[in-house]
Simulated scan of single mutants.
Amino acid sequence: MPNLIVIDRIAIGTVAADFHPNAFKAALAEFISTLIFVFAGQGSTMAYNKLTSNAPTSPAGLIAVALAHAFGLFVAVATSANISGGHCNPAVTFGAFLGGNITLLRGILYWIAQLLGSTVACLLLKFATHYMTVSVFTLSSGVSVWNAFVFEIVMTFALVYTVYATAIDAKKGDVGVIAPLAIGFVLGANILAGGAFEGAALNPAVPFGPALVSWNWHHHWVYWAGPLIGGGLAGVVYELIFISHTHEPLAVVEY
């Protein structure tokens, strides 16, 4: 592909190729879809806290929050898949980059849009709830940062692996609604698995908005390092082992 600086299948990209009107439309789609997802997910957590007067998470509450995140991500991915690929997650974008399916410059544009979407969602929630406290991701009692780190790596690997299998792989065929549904389901399942231990972000944008709005960065690095490692590993593993390489790299970012 001309005008690209390529290291194997990894592409840095160029300003001309990655910063044009359609690229900004894709970034806008990422902003809106991430806002939709975080507003639903964070809003469900804040609603639970209001209904229970900030009581510890109950099994029913965890299920409700997991379902809200699963449904929210399903809608977010479905509404942006044909425009931007429906990443809604810096870890997904990073995994796609390491697999050679998006350029670095386009990925940075997506990251900015995703983080802004999360931040605006939290600001809107804070205003709409008459300045209730936005829920910051924290570790449960007895859970160390390394426990949480492993949780985030494994769970995000599962999420990004699912994205590759159902949305990025050219051999997937016409899966239609199955891709966003599967992606939402795997997120909800992993929140049920890890939510009681460390919040289960699987997405650096999700804890970023609350941390910025509340200015509470305690253990925040875990929710970046774990998902980026897990997402990156999933992208590399799926790309190297399961994708045939007969299709053109970066095809998912040509708009």
Rank of each mutant, 00 (worst) to 15 (best):
L73Q: 01
P2T: 15
V134A: 02
R9H: 15
P249F: 08
A81H: 02
M132W: 11
H87D: 03
P207D: 05
S118W: 15
H69R: 02
G107Y: 08
I10Y: 13
K50F: 11
I5T: 14
P21K: 06
E30V: 10
G230Q: 09
L104W: 10
F39H: 06
G199A: 11
F149C: 03
M155S: 05
L250Q: 11
P249Q: 04
G72F: 00
L187V: 15
A193Q: 05
I108H: 07
A26T: 07
G13K: 03
A16P: 04
T79P: 00
A76I: 00
G86M: 00
K25T: 14
I32W: 05
A66P: 01
V136W: 09
V143W: 04
A23Y: 07
G173Y: 10
A66G: 01
L67D: 03
N101K: 13
Y164R: 06
L250G: 10
A211P: 09
V222E: 05
F151P: 00
N49F: 11
V252G: 03
C88L: 10
M1C: 13
T156S: 11
F94K: 03
G86Q: 00
F197Y: 15
L73G: 02
I108M: 13
C122H: 04
F208C: 03
H245E: 15
A251N: 13
H130W: 06
L28V: 14
F157H: 06
S58K: 05
L159S: 02
R9A: 13
Y161S: 11
E30P: 09
G231W: 04
L212T: 06
V213F: 08
Q114S: 11
I183N: 01
V134E: 00
A70I: 01
S33Y: 06
